[in-house]
């Protein structure tokens, strides 16, 4: 169908969580336990020097390929740069979507992410990110639900 990018600052926590909810790796109806976050592929794994590299998370039930992308605080530059390249290469952007996963993010997630990814203290940072994400989990579920509804509408429009 198309390609959907969940993007955030480091591509290690919130966007990974959103993509995991989207692909049903994480539940919609309850807040997951700590071990469930640790079991997600790529959770708290993105290195700083690899920021900008999209990570493939899987294909959803409508056939969209779901990727995760960390772009620091440069979404207003990086997204136009990607779209510009697609445009210059003659590729339609109709089925390329970018969704910011930085919605109502708990400050603890940001501090934990910095501690884990920037300072390399993942034994302190990772539990903090999980604690923060569990706090804002309902917002992330809400975001993904809205994204999936929009994709379903898009899909229906193509079929009719």
């Amino acid at each position: 169908m198309g390609i959907l990018f969940y993007h955030c600052y480091g591509g290690a926590h919130t966007s990974i969580t959103c993509a995991s909810i989207h692909l049903n790796y994480l539940p919609y109806d309850r807040i997951p336990e700590t071990y469930e976050f640790k079991a997600i592929p790529f959770y708290d794994k993105m290195d700083n020097d690899k920021l900008g590299t999209p990570l493939y998370m899987g294909r959803d039930d409508l056939g969209w390929d779901i990727y995760v992308l960390g772009m620091k605080d440069g979404k207003s530059v990086v997204i136009p740069a990607i779209k510009s390249l697609l445009n210059a290469s003659g590729i339609s952007q109709q089925d390329v979507l970018f969704v910011s996963a930085l919605v109502q993010i708990n400050p603890l997630t940001a501090i934990g992410g910095f501690t884990s990814r920037k300072l390399g203290l993942s034994f302190i940072g990772r539990p903090m990110t999980i604690w923060g994400i569990r706090k804002s989990y309902p917002h992330l579920v809400d975001l993904v639900t809205r994204v999936k509804q929009a994709l379903a509408q898009h899909h229906d429009r193509l079929l009719t």
Binding site: I3, D49, G52, T53, P54, K72, V78
Partner: peptide, 19 residues
């Protein structure tokens, strides 16, 4: 590229592979 040269470079290279 503002301050994001390395991010854009990697994004472009990998987007090229995806598409």
């Amino acid at each position: 590229c503002n301050r994001f040269f390395s991010v854009i470079e990697k994004a472009h290279t990998n987007i090229g592979k995806i598409f």
